[in-house]
Design a binder for these strands. Sequence first.
DNA 1: AAAACCACCAACCGCGTACTT
DNA 2: GAAGTACGCGGTTGGTGGTTT
Length: 272
Amino acid sequence: MGRNQCCAKDGLNRGAWSFQEDQLLINYVKIHGEGKWRTLAQRTGLKRCGKSCRLRWLNYLRPDIKRGNISADEEDLIIRLHNLLGNRWALIAGRLPGRTDNEIKNYWNTNLAKKLNDQTSKPAIGLRPLKSEEKKPIEGLKVDKTFFPPEKHQSILNTNEQLINCDIGKILSSSTSTPLQDDSLDFLMDFDISDDLILDDLSSYSYHIYSNEICENGDVVGGNNIHMYSSYPSFSEDGPSPESEMKRELSDQPTFNLELKKVASFLDLEDE
DNA sequence: AAAACCACCAACCGCGTACTT
DNA sequence: GAAGTACGCGGTTGGTGGTTT
């Protein structure tokens, strides 16, 4: 409700962080862990607002940060995820271990947007700027960051070739379709199977779709959901995977259809 | 050599929302 | 339930270094 008061400007340092400030922040987080950023700023004597401390830690000082040299695989993943998710940088970053939302956002704005705008003949990777309307948060959709351990991430990249192309329309028109693959593929999003318009749009789009719920027993399990990926496989480990957690969370959203329609219209526009 | 321009990216800002009192 | 606080997110800004003229 009330606005964050931590950024009152009086007496606070602004601009680039000094080495000493970094060390103070690192040492404090080592001892006390992340969070309580405002308290951190006060206790360490840093003349920074809590928000600034958090940002510095998350974007620069965190030990697992991977900096620079975004690989071709990472770039491809960013493009695909952006196609699906739009400017949800934090969500995209959650699928690129060691990368921050800020870094991906910067990379997008300075490299990919430009590069891909040049490729106007390839609408599937189209990156037209979002209209103001599309920039609004989508009601009813909440997605948390999901962290993939590096080994899993690597498996995503390494097995990228093992995908099965399939036609969404076929899957959806046949309730007894053959299983496409193991159930570890579904890590991006769930889509409500009830929306024909969306399905039409999606079926014309060259994403890889997998629906283990449909395939396993000829019935649709788990709330009429299909799973859509932009071609990433596949983890199989005991316990709930991050992606299944995400899937569950998404499928819990009562107004998720809104998101579906936006995605569909987004894809549809790109095809034009 | 220097001014102008450009690109990159760290940091800031405002807003929304979850959480706490 | 209301008010206050903390945090997270996406858009934007501005400093800096590199390149071009």
